[in-house]
Design a protein around this nucleic acid. Structure first.
Lengths: 199, 199
DNA sequence: GCCATTGATGACAGTTGCTGACATCAATCA
DNA sequence: TGATTGATGTCAGCAACTGTCATCAATGGC
């Protein structure tokens, strides 16, 4: 049943070939060992048994190797939002989207922590992370519009939801227990509190 | 009284030398004429009568030439937040910060529109814009903490405020009238509505 | 079993963003 | 007048990224 094989490059891996995964693994290792700046794409490719050119066939740029998979997250959230009951409020639908990914994160707590250490040390990576969040916010906005939520309500609700997600994630990734849904709930309640407290 | 002078490079400008301004102007022109990708830093520098090396002495990278001045915006917002009355609520203080920059924008409506056309066409520029917003959100968070607002309240309020700002800006920059404070007020009211509407 | 096609990769050259190091020159000041 | 300072020019070089073509394993019709 084990899928360990020898491919035609002589490399051994859990799944046949899987060059993208090998590149991601190699990148994480090198970023952790020597830092992001000190790591070259050529170095990552070499450790993965591939060439620099192939790296750029799998990832649009050097940063992307750390963020690949964000589309999956986006898809999960959008799907959850779509399957929320039609009578749900915009904020309720957003809450459903956030809740849909807590399990995904709880299963990857150590990996997320290692990743965050790298990102926190490099502004260009934080920039990319923000861009990914913006992308998700845009997708959620679109999904809310599809539910009949007008503008600017849709965008503001989605952005507020992403703000909750970011605060919750920051809290979750720092903690050791790793209960993402509790963090979401707390941050969402906090947002409601500061808004209802008024200006 | 006019400050037009001939500097030692033979260049003429409204203010003596002002290399940074010349580079920004040249960049805006070239980005608009030929697009961001097709414009090289060497080309910008040449049009400004300077060298590529000097460009990078004034701007940390190619994108930054479009975003220089963001620190000024951040400073204005932080100052306004600081001078808000101590009894103001977190959201009220954030509203003061947003209101403090509406005039600044209203005075630069056409320039903002031209800039936005360029940014909208290039994901890497949108990424930088998001990073600038994140930076401001961080500064506002810190300023709220200094007022005694705890975490995660401070971060969430600041992020919500930036979300309002972004929606308001998008609306303002698309419009022809250019009344930023009205856009801020509308978006803030919308945010309050969608939150108070509940989950 | 053979061959054409397809998809992923390697090889290689080239452009551009960006940096370090040193030289130059005008302005300033002791 | 001469030393210093700050901004710029010059030049070499690295690394990110791209276009192009060759290679080769796998696939599928015959």
């Amino acid at each position: 049943m084990s899928a360990t094989v020898i491919n035609y490059h002589g490399a051994m891996s859990r799944w046949p070939s899987n060059p993208r995964g090998r590149l991601q693994q190699a990148a994480m290792e090198l970023f952790t060992e020597h830092g992001y700046d000190q790591t070259t794409v050529a170095g990552i490719a070499e450790r993965a048994g591939l060439t620099e050119r192939t790296f750029f066939r799998h990832f649009s740029d050097k940063r992307e190797v750390l963020f690949f998979g964000g589309e999956q997250l986006e898809a999960m959230m959008v799907a959850a939002l779509r399957s929320a009951p039609p009578e749900a409020t915009p904020l309720g639908a957003i809450e459903a989207a956030l809740s849909a990914v807590t399990e995904f994160f709880d299963e990857r707590h150590p990996l997320s922590q290692a990743r965050q250490v790298i990102i926190d040390a490099h502004p260009e990576l934080q920039e990319r992370e923000g861009a990914k969040m913006d992308r998700i916010a845009g997708a959620l906005t679109e999904a809310l519009r599809a539910r009949g939520v007008p503008d600017p309500d849709a965008r503001l609700t989605a952005d507020a939801g992403i703000a909750v997600f970011r605060s919750a994630f920051a809290q979750w990734v720092r903690s050791d227990v790793g209960d993402m849904s509790a963090c979401i709930e707390e941050c969402l309640a906090t947002l409601e509190k500061v808004i209802e407290q008024g200006r």
